[in-house]
Amino acid sequence: MRKLLPAIAIALAGLSGGIPAVSAMQAPAAAPPPSPYSYADVADLATAAPMAIHARIASATALKPERAPGVAAGSSRFYVEADVVGLIRGKGPLAARISYLVDLPLGANGKPVKLKKKQPVLLFARPVAAGAAGSTSTNSIRLVAPDAQLPWDPATEARLRAILTELVKPGAAPAISGFANGFHVPGTLPGEGETQLFFDTATGEPMSLTILTSADGSRRWAAAFGEIVDGSAAVPARDTLAWYRLACGLPRQLPLAKLAGTPPEDRRKAASDYGIVLGALGDCTRTRKPPAG
């Protein structure tokens, strides 16, 4: 038996060498925290701003009320200088240090918040020409909204980059500017019908909704950005540019006056079909007010 011990030891050593993956198994890395801002929050700023900048605050000075005309109640205006980390969107050259004004909510104590040195931020802005009103130097920028400075985090930057990638694609969904016209026609079988609704966009390209109702009452719909009306097109996935344009840009109610000339029952059916689309898209969730204009 004593002569077998070395062999047993070797066998056990072989077994122990064969299971390091189990003994060295580690818990999976925690997923990074999601962005505190909704898709619409970031898209509102990304679609309005010709420049998106990752920067770090170098200095921030709270301005006295008499030097901050028009600041909203409950907010304080800051003059900020920041060091550019990277230009995410926009055309250079851009100075290594930039300056701008930003309005931020007061702290819980009713006083201006503290902006820490080297605090990373995302800025959504336009360039300011030297000598323009409000410009202090050639490195000045103007935010597209008084509060268009977001705390930087990896998830928010990733969301921003995904939106910008969609924006530059050929045929990217444009902003909806209003309802043009539409109609509903009954089908050949009882209960069947088709509604087509047409909308104006900021680029002049047409956008349409098609809602088809089967005889059993089931409905399916599609959105088309462009000249071709395709009732079989896929419904835009949530948190995509096309979804954002629809969920955040469609009017909450269908202007039935623009369906004049069609029978009242057909207008009511069109309005009902439109409600199905809005319900399927879901809410345009925002945590901040979008930029004006």
Rank of each mutant, 00 (worst) to 15 (best):
220 R>L: 12
82 A>Q: 02
49 A>I: 01
80 V>Y: 00
252 R>N: 14
70 G>Y: 04
125 A>Y: 02
29 A>W: 09
175 A>V: 07
163 I>K: 02
222 A>W: 09
136 T>G: 15
2 R>A: 11
130 A>C: 04
64 K>L: 15
93 P>H: 02
215 A>F: 04
255 P>K: 01
198 F>N: 09
244 Y>N: 14
194 E>F: 04
58 A>P: 07
248 C>A: 10
190 P>E: 06
84 V>Y: 03
142 R>I: 03
98 I>V: 05
228 I>L: 15
9 A>T: 02
37 Y>L: 11
205 E>M: 15
268 R>E: 03
84 V>T: 08
204 G>E: 12
158 A>C: 09
257 A>P: 11
109 N>L: 05
100 Y>T: 03
106 L>S: 08
180 A>K: 10
122 L>I: 07
45 L>S: 00
164 L>H: 06
1 M>Q: 12
5 L>K: 03
229 V>C: 09
207 M>K: 07
82 A>W: 01
77 R>L: 05
201 T>V: 09
282 G>C: 11
140 S>Y: 01
293 G>T: 12
96 A>C: 09
265 E>A: 14
157 E>R: 05
221 W>A: 05
78 F>N: 02
186 P>T: 04
188 T>K: 13
184 H>A: 06
36 P>M: 03
33 P>N: 03
156 T>G: 04
206 P>K: 06
25 M>F: 14
91 K>S: 14
24 A>Q: 13
235 V>C: 13
157 E>W: 05
44 D>E: 05
290 P>Q: 13
216 D>R: 10
283 D>A: 15
168 V>M: 09
242 A>Q: 15
277 V>I: 12
213 T>F: 07
243 W>M: 08
106 L>Q: 06
71 V>N: 09
